[in-house]
Design a protein around this nucleic acid. Structure first.
Length: 459
DNA sequence: AGTGCCGGGAG
DNA sequence: CTCCCGGCACT
């Protein structure tokens, strides 16, 4: 283990990596599906027997599989982009204006550490125009970012959510035991996720889009995004972009067949039924941090619908009213491309105690007496890519303070019962360890080396 | 279990 | 001081 190279701690199978296509000199994303130890030509599917000359079998999004040696791979536990010279046309991902966008390399000048990337419209059909950005090599990713670990968990739970919500509709029961859909058995992903990027799964067609919509709706069950990113891009990040029929599979299953979500009918139903005044974020898929969820539920409570469009604080008492408001005040006339029920993403349901004054304050969420006070936006920004990578993210955070000064970004943090007065909250930022990995510890900032607060990526 | 980093020890 | 690491908090 002292070789310097970090070996994956658990099974490397499923690790997303980029590997070099020698034909065109470009790195293509794929997933490790196995490894071979040259000494014994048996096919390993995990950590045993991996040696430095192990070869890894990578399946690309095209379905093609190839074998690579460790040094030919870029990804967690393997090489990093920083050591590469990117060739023109290399597909990359960068964070631009707070969201992850994909683009292609125009040129890379290692001497001045400059990569010019042409960013294409992230949302097909949008009127964004292509533009170029210059980035440093270490800001460039070959793999699409995944959500934070926390959200990966949540994503994992969408299916459960569907299931649960569906049950809830039928029977208002508090106890939830969710049988896992058998064909959705998902083992925990490695940190980078093991899901194929969906961009090439063009054949998935409408089904996938339906699932996309369904997933979105599930998200809206717990919260409605109102992030600027959404407004600009129409939808989410590049994973939704290049082809309009992509995306959902990455949330739903890792087999790329789009069959992971067997209950799409259910989802569809939910889509049209989620006006039912049942607070839905208490599903065990998404934790409610307020702890005493049941408490307000027992009390007489009232559901209000709050517009989350930035700068707007409209509160309505019914789902229809708020949707009408969002539709006509913000979204404009219905447009086929944006899909139906887009309104749902721009409001939240909140439960307020009927005893207190029902009208919540006019700023974003967070008023007392509201039991679902967490901000939706953040979660969805997370899904675009780790917020930590976004310097502007913190700014947004500042701007979204609720009247009492709390950001309701991360309720956990806020509610943290006993965070030491001294100990700084665990930052969301990338740290040297993450950025460079163990194998390049020498590039860590001194503080990180000494296990002190990171100065390079800290705030 | 992995990660971030405080607190404190050694030199 | 710098260097290092035990161990806790947090995820």
């Amino acid at each position: 283990m002292s070789a310097g190279k970090r070996l994956a701690k658990r099974s490397i199978v499923g690790t997303r990596v980029c590997a070099l296509y020698k034909e065109n000199g470009l790195y293509h994303p794929g997933v490790i599906i196995g490894s071979k130890n040259p000494d014994e030509l048996n096919f390993h599917n995990c950590h045993t027997g991996i040696t430095s000359n192990s070869r890894y079998v990578v399946r690309f999004e095209t379905g093609e599989t190839r074998e690579f040696s460790e040094s030919e791979l870029i990804g967690p536990g393997f090489g990093s982009v920083n050591s590469l010279k990117l060739r023109p046309c290399q597909k990359t991902f960068v964070t631009h204006n707070g969201r992850e966008v994909s683009g292609t390399v125009v040129y890379h000048r290692p001497q001045i550490d400059e990569v010019l990337i042409n960013i294409l419209p992230q949302c097909p059909g949008s009127n964004e125009i292509p533009f170029d950005v210059t980035k440093k090599l270490d800001e460039v990713r070959l793999l699409e970012s995944r959500k934070s670990a926390r959200l990966q968990e949540q994503d994992f739970d969408f299916a459960r959510l569907a299931d649960v919500a569906d049950r809830k509709r039928n029977q208002q029961t508090a106890s939830i035991d969710v049988p896992r859909n058998t064909n959705m058995s998902r083992k925990r992903r490695p940190s980078s996720g093991n899901i194929f990027q969906p961009m090439l799964s063009l054949q998935a067609g409408d089904d996938v889009m339906d699932e996309c919509a369904a997933a979105m709706v599930l998200m809206s069950l717990s919260c409605s995004p109102h992030s600027p990113q959404w407004e600009n891009s129409g939808m989410i990040s590049s994973s939704w972009s290049s082809s309009s029929s992509s995306g959902a599979s990455s949330w739903l299953s890792n087999n790329g067949s789009g069959s992971g979500l067997s209950g799409s009918g259910t989802l569809g139903e939910m889509h049209y039924n989620n006006c039912s005044p049942t607070p839905s974020s208490s599903d065990d898929g998404i934790e409610s941090d307020s702890g005493d969820w049941d408490e307000p539920r027992k009390k007489k409570t009232k559901l209000i619908f709050k517009c989350t469009w930035p700068g707007c604080s409209m509160v309505k008492e019914s789902c229809f009213e708020i949707e009408a408001h969002v539709r006509y005040a913000h979204l404009g006339p219905k447009n086929e491309e944006s899909g139906d029920h887009e309104e749902e993403f721009y409001y939240t349901e909140e439960e307020v105690s009927d005893l207190s004054s029902p009208a919540p304050s006019s700023s974003f969420g967070g008023s007392s007496g509201v039991s679902m006070a967490f901000s939706p936006t953040l979660s969805h920004m997370d899904m675009v890519r780790p917020p930590s990578e976004d310097p502007e993210y913190k700014l947004n955070q500042q701007q979204r303070k609720s009247p009492n000064g709390n950001t309701h970004l991360n309720p956990k943090k806020r509610l943290s019962p006993k965070s030491s007065p001294v100990r700084r909250p665990r930052g969301d930022t990338k740290k040297c360890r993450k950025v460079y990995g163990m194998e390049r510890r020498d590039q860590w900032c001194t503080q990180c080396k000494w296990k002190k607060a990171c100065t390079r990526f800290g705030d």
